[in-house]
Amino acid sequence: MVKEIERAGIPVVHIATVVPIALTVGANRIVPAIGIPYPLGDPSLGDEGEKNIRRDLVERALKALGTPIKGQTVFDDAYEF
C-alpha cells in the first residue's frame, strides 16, 4: 500500500509494529510503533502518559517525512535527525 501512495507522488511515513515486514513491503520511511495491539499507545501508562508518547511518536513521524533520504530508513530512537 505504502509504495503505491509514494508512486502516486505523496510522501508517506509508515508507523509499523513489525519493522522487518515494513521493510519487505517496501516502505521507505519507517517509524517503529510501540506494540502490535497498541501501535500508538501503551496501556501500562495512564491517559496522560499515553498521549505524551503518542505525541512523541507522531512528531518523530513528521520529522521523518521532513528528512531527505536515499533509501529505506528506520527512524528509531537511535536515529539523530
Binding site: G9, I10, P11, V12, V13, I15, A22, A33, P39
Partner: peptide, 13 residues
C-alpha cells in the same frame, strides 16, 4: 491528490 493532501501517516498493527 484531488483533495490536496501533501503527506500521509500510515499506521499498521
Amino acid at each position: 491528490l484531488e483533495d490536496g493532501v501533501n503527506a500521509v501517516i500510515l499506521t499498521s498493527t
